[in-house]
Design a protein around this nucleic acid. Structure first.
Lengths: 221, 221
DNA sequence: CGCAAATTTGAACATCGTCAACTCTAGTGG
DNA sequence: CCACTAGAGTTGACGATGTTCAAATTTGCG
């Protein structure tokens, strides 16, 4: 599972710079701060979120190794109120904005790799929107798990293990549901032996069964 | 308002091909069909949506002139269950997938323009997600109108006119609310003289007031 | 003018969020 | 090794909010 893009130029570019280490829970880039450059994730997972005016946390996406942020800022868009935070130990490489732009303009291959990365993110965001457009808690949670499997899962037969720890709060924040409702729906899936959790690592015990839950749900309506 | 990207190479590339005309309501690319190529919008607006298993329509985004679809398909992703439909009269230019890929690989400038377009779409999608993560109908509708103003609006003082017709159903489908609820919230804004509608064209009479509605709403909580 | 599409309105109903009390678990330090 | 603590998850009751359905009205277009 997952997608393997060829981003050898991009990674080589960032690998020439210094390494920065972050512990789990550390903020890498805080909302409102001017980014110190473009961040490349060598290892670990980074959640990108904003805090709404009412204090609720709004999770946009989780970046994985090989990805770069904040992409839109590189091209003149606001990073606005986005915060980037390590949800596991993280190793970052960093280049300045101007260096990165110069790199993209100097090598045709580089721009092409960056384009591939951008298109991949667009695909991820389409999935997020599809997820958020579902209208009830069960299908939202189920779909969320399917998307996470596709993006972060390691498959073994019907079993899919997610590669990073996720709290129910994380999931709730990403699908715009309360933590309690999210827990209740996950509990249903656990009782059906479709998923298990251990130390915040989620395993889908049977990915086909999980997919069927969604279609069954709609058919029963 | 709106964003002006420099996409002169891309538009020149597509302008050498045949023109296709579509009437309002016509489907340009149907869910499940293999795309006949890459479509460039010379004129008009195209909505991209999917139909869920329960029959509800799920609007992902509205493409405007100068934009290209289906982007992810060009790079090997599924167009899956997406339908593209003209919401105004539309003029399309079209190139084959292989020609378009060859074009991107041949000119460094072309890849760079395509990258700019992709990043712009990412920004649009971030806004969509931010919109969908709001938890109540009034702020969802208000935010939706603000986003539409930014992307499709023509400003004149505090007044912003949207450049394409939108039914309440269109808006409801894009923010995952029922048509009735959407209408009720828009009615509130009309009564406050913040927006007007004529023949499905929405005008924000006072964009600052509209922005204040959102912040006021949160502050009162 | 007349049909079809879009919108308005009201009322009953369902779902989810909120709150509060409780339990479980992993990690910390004596 | 055990007790403590903080963070995370569970559960039940209740109320708020939005959906649904149906009927009436308005609007746009041929």
């Amino acid at each position: 599972m997952g997608v393997s893009l060829n981003t050898s130029r991009v990674s080589a570019f960032f690998n020439s710079s210094q390494r920065y280490l972050y512990r789990k829970g550390e903020v890498i880039l805080r909302a409102g701060d001017i980014p110190s450059g473009i961040y490349y994730i060598e290892k670990g997972f980074v959640k990108m979120y904003s805090v709404m005016l009412d204090g609720s946390e709004n999770l946009y996406l989780i970046h994985q190794p090989g990805e770069v942020f904040p992409g839109p800022w590189l091209f003149g868009y606001e990073t606005g109120n986005l915060t980037f935070e390590a949800i596991t130990p993280v190793i970052i490489r960093r280049k300045s904005k101007s260096e990165t732009l110069a790199f993209l303009n100097s090598e045709a291959e580089a721009a092409r790799e960056a384009l591939d990365m951008a298109i991949y993110i667009i695909d991820v965001l389409f999935n997020r929107i599809e997820n958020l457009e579902l209208t009830n808690s069960f299908s939202r949670v189920t779909k969320r798990l399917l998307i996470l499997s596709k993006r972060f899962g390691t498959r073994n037969g019907f079993k899919v293990a997610l590669s990073m720890p996720l709290t129910h709060t994380n999931i709730a924040n990403s699908i715009n549901m309360s933590r309690e409702t999210t827990s209740r729906e996950m509990e249903k899936l656990k009782r059906k032996n479709i998923i298990t959790e251990k130390n915040h690592f989620i395993t889908i015990e049977n990915i086909e069964k999980l997919e069927n839950e969604l279609t069954d749900y709609f058919e029963s309506k």
